[in-house]
Amino acid sequence: MSDLLYGVITGILFGFLLQKGRVLRYDKQLGALRLKDMTIVKFMLSSIMVGMVGVYFLSDLGLVKLSIRGINLGANILGGLTFGIGWALLGYCPGTSLGAVGEGRWDGLWGIAGMLVGAAIYAEAFPVMQSTVLTWGNLGRITLPQLLGLNHWLVIILFIGGSLALFRFFEKQGW
């Protein structure tokens, strides 16, 4: 029960910040895809930078356990490309579609309905995917630091450095 309570509290905090950052809107999401407005990229990279430092710090102290997703090149690449097409048409991602409805942009409801249908279709196609795409380039549960053979803090510092350089570029461009 407390697990479900933590879920809704975390969602409220996260949704509040997504809305304050103005990243839920179609115009912001398409603005990024059209290289006109990088608000969502600023928000995402800031969130990832802070999150990766905190989570790895707690992991080093043995206070949390990382949840590593398997790398599966075929599925990651084909799925990513497919997601991108759908995202550009819809203008919301799975989480932000709910947030968009929360701030009154109810075209998100069409997207939610479509995504439920897409999930049902994927469930039908899953056995076929398991014997095809999901076997292509399966590298197992590895992280970037493991793949590169580097200490994770070095990778984190490089990621932060790259993100800050990107932010500087965005601000110069007026994006």
Binding site: T82, L90, D107, V117
Partner: peptide, 19 residues
């Protein structure tokens, strides 16, 4: 609405495939 719905179908299939 129809474009958003279609986009949703495609986006979720891709998202689940990519994991």
């Amino acid at each position: 609405g129809l474009t958003a719905f279609s986009g949703g179908v495609i986006a979720m299939f891709g998202a689940r495939l990519a994991g």
